[in-house]
Computed example of a mutant assay.
Amino acid sequence: MSATNVGTDHRIDRARITALIPHQGAMCLWDEVLDWDAGAIRLRTTGHRASDNPLRSDGGLRAVHLCEYGAQAMAVHGGLLASAAGGAAPPGVLVALRGVQLHVARIDGLAGDLVCEAERLVAFDSSQQYGFRISHDQVLLAEGRAAVVLQPTTAPEQGRP
């Protein structure tokens, strides 16, 4: 991440995060933005330990769910960029995961924070691709790339549904 930050505040709390993304309540997986700039974001969470984490099944939280954590990091970054430009980010649909490597089987038993670093690799008006790395106590848990197609936000023409 470059030393120049697009936003005026480096740390951003959960309340602001939920104002930027469609994920609400327990489905908002990130607690805090640690730093961000035009090309990347770094976030942290303790939610992987929460018994009400909506991604849990059979009493645990599997490492494959770190892909959702990476995708939400993209959404938060897009929301921050759009907000800094005076607008709102369009909703996106995750369409592809590539090069995903999971280095653990489960994450629910990890005592410390999860930290995600996500870097915008490609950005167009209609799609984006990010690389993400998620770690715990500086040990890499998962990495990969995610692609999102952005939904149009224009209103329908008058007289058309």
Rank of each mutant, 00 (worst) to 15 (best):
Leu140Phe: 05
His48Leu: 02
Glu143Ser: 06
Ala40Thr: 14
Ala123Gln: 13
Gly39Asp: 15
Gln101Phe: 02
Ala15Lys: 14
Val122Pro: 08
Glu32Met: 11
Gln129Ile: 12
Arg62Lys: 06
Ala38Gln: 06
Met27Phe: 01
His65Thr: 14
Ala26Asn: 04
Gly79Asp: 09
Ala105Pro: 10
Met27Asp: 02
Glu143Phe: 01
Met74Gln: 14
Val100Gly: 02
Leu114Lys: 00
Thr18Leu: 07
Pro91Trp: 03
Ala147Glu: 08
Leu66Asn: 14
Arg106Leu: 04
Glu143Lys: 05
Pro91Ile: 02
Leu140Cys: 13
Glu157Gln: 11
Asn5Thr: 13
Ala85Glu: 11
His103Ile: 03
Ala88Val: 00
Asp58Pro: 06
Val93Gln: 09
Tyr69Ala: 00
Leu61Cys: 09
Ala85Leu: 05
Glu119His: 14
Arg49Glu: 00
Ala96Asn: 12
Trp36His: 15
Ala118Leu: 06
Gly7Ala: 08
Val122His: 15
Gln129Ala: 15
Ser127Ile: 03
Ser57Ala: 14
Leu29Asp: 02
Ala147Arg: 15
Gln158Cys: 09
Val95Met: 08
Arg16Ala: 14
Asp31Gln: 02
Arg44Leu: 04
Glu68Gly: 01
Ile21Thr: 14
Leu150Gln: 05
Val148Tyr: 02
Thr8Pro: 09
Asp52Gly: 09
Ala85Ile: 01
Gln24Phe: 07
Leu110Cys: 01
Asp52Phe: 03
Phe132Val: 07
Ser57Glu: 11
Gly70Phe: 00
